[in-house]
């Protein structure tokens, strides 16, 4: 397998020399047929990275190749092989669904019967065949998002970029979008996906790059990333009475790390849970409090992010 996306030390500073450094030396590769997710909180630099890779923004440093062409030297070739689904819905609301697809298809050099056939296929794919004659302005949020994706599929791109395509929509639409992406990927499409939902990244990605403050904090498969957290287990507890005192006592215990506390709910990372959990009960009892609930989970990407950055992924 060859790398379909190769990113070397990419940088972007807006309004240099004093402006925001939105992307600060990011490198990664995406192999052909992979789904690669950029996971990161708001402002991490995901959109800026995607914009550079789709030749919309000129990098202030570094280099990247998409489908074998340099984004700096050969933007035209890059665009030929690329479908881009922007973060914000970018459609003509006063035209209907089919008219939108027809227009964008023409922008991708499709025409005639070929175009009309392809429009029908895409409409089926995104489940909008029945609403194709309605003005996009009258679509629901989820339908707009689906059409927004459909536009990028018309020319059967080799590489698909999707920038947070599921933000702010209902669970069914999200489901159908995620399934659709998996289908496209099974058919051979390489996908670069951005999100700040760790469940999404976990579900669809072959590999995940964790971004924060313009940097790639770490990168790997879900299992690899989770392993970074170590042999720890996540323990969620609810405390009845004096959670502060309990927390203070727990902090002193070896192999116990408090990740967060919201009211009387605490999240902990615990080494060797079998041994540690009885000690947690013991200390709580000594502080005069009671544990009303306790759950034990494998760590997830949220914990990984916290482990790596010391902050929570959620805003």
């Amino acid at each position: 397998m060859r790398a379909v996306i190769q990113v070397n030390d990419l940088r972007k500073q807006f309004n240099p020399p004093d402006g925001t450094v939105a992307v600060d030396g990011v490198s990664f590769t995406v192999e052909g047929g992979e789904i690669f997710s950029l996971l990161g909180p708001n402002g991490a630099g995901k959109t800026t990275t995607i914009s550079m890779l789709s030749c919309l923004l000129r990098p202030t440093g570094g280099e990247a190749w998409v489908a074998g062409s340099s984004i700096i030297e050969e933007p035209r070739q890059v665009r030929d092989h690329l479908g881009v689904v922007p973060q914000e819905v970018a459609l003509y609301l006063d035209l209907n669904g089919r008219e939108n697809l027809r227009f964008w298809g023409r922008m991708y050099r499709l025409s005639g019967d070929d175009l009309e056939r392809r429009i029908d296929e895409v409409l089926d794919l995104i489940g909008l065949a029945e609403r194709q004659r309605d003005r996009v302005a009258d679509y629901s949020g989820g339908m707009k998002r689906r059409l927004n994706i459909g536009v990028a599929l018309l020319h059967r791109p080799e590489v698909l970029f999707l920038d947070e395509p599921t933000v702010g929509i209902d669970p069914q639409s999200r489901r159908s979008i995620l399934d659709g992406i998996k289908d496209l990927n099974s058919a051979g499409m390489t996908v670069l996906y951005t999100t700040h939902y760790m469940e999404e990244a976990q579900e669809i990605s072959d590999r995940i790059g964790i971004m924060d403050h313009g940097r790639m904090v770490n990168c790997g498969t879900h299992a690899e990333l989770v392993r970074l957290v170590g042999e720890e287990t996540r323990v969620n507890v609810s405390i009845d009475g004096g959670p502060e005192k309990v927390a203070k006592r727990w902090e002193g215990l070896a192999g116990v790390r408090i990740l967060s506390r919201e009211g009387s709910d605490l999240r902990l990372l615990v080494k060797d849970a079998q041994d540690a959990i009885p000690r947690l009960f013991q200390q709580a009892e000594r502080a005069g409090s009671r544990l009303t609930a306790i759950t034990v989970e494998e760590p997830d990407l949220e914990d990984v992010f916290l482990h790596l950055t010391g902050r929570e992924l959620r805003d």
Partner: peptide, 13 residues
């Protein structure tokens, strides 16, 4: 509306 940027991601010059 973002459609101009989107146009610039297509092969249209």
């Amino acid at each position: 509306a973002g459609t101009l940027a989107r146009l610039f991601t297509t092969p249209t010059s």
